[in-house]
Amino acid sequence: MMPAVAQAEGEKNVLAIGGSVTEIIYALGEGDRLIGRDSTSSYPPEATGLPDVGYMRALAPEGVLSVGPGMIISEDGAGPPETIEVLQAANIPFITVPDGYSAEGIVQKILTVGEALDVEAASIALASDVRMKLQEAEEAADALAGDAPKRVLFILSTQDGRIMASGTNTAASGIIEMAGGVNAVTAFEGYKPMSDEAVIAAAPDVILMMDRSGDHFVSDDDLFALPAIATTPAAQTQSVVRMNGLYLLGFGPRTADAVLDLTAALYKG
Rank of each mutant, 00 (worst) to 15 (best):
M2Q: 12
M2P: 08
A8E: 11
E11I: 05
N13T: 12
V14F: 07
G19D: 12
I24H: 06
D32I: 05
R33P: 11
G36C: 12
R37I: 00
S41P: 13
Y43N: 09
P45N: 15
E46Q: 12
E46P: 05
G49E: 14
L50K: 05
V53E: 03
A58Y: 15
L59E: 00
A60G: 14
P61M: 02
E62Q: 15
M71V: 14
M71Q: 13
I72R: 02
G77A: 14
E82A: 15
A90Y: 03
A90H: 05
N91M: 02
D99K: 14
E104Y: 00
E104N: 02
E104P: 03
I106L: 04
V107Y: 05
Q108K: 15
Q108E: 15
I110F: 10
E115R: 11
L117F: 12
D118I: 15
E120C: 06
A122C: 07
I124L: 04
V130F: 06
M132I: 11
M132C: 10
K133E: 08
Q135S: 09
A137R: 11
A143G: 11
A148S: 07
P149D: 04
R151C: 06
R151L: 07
V152P: 00
L153R: 00
F154D: 01
L156C: 08
T158M: 07
Q159N: 09
D160L: 03
M164A: 10
S166A: 14
A171P: 03
A172F: 03
S173H: 06
I176L: 02
E177L: 04
F188E: 01
E197Q: 10
A202V: 11
A203E: 13
M209R: 12
M210D: 06
R212D: 06
S213D: 15
G214D: 00
V218Q: 02
P227R: 09
A230W: 05
T232L: 04
Q236N: 09
L249Q: 01
L249A: 05
T255A: 11
A258W: 08
T263P: 04
A264C: 10
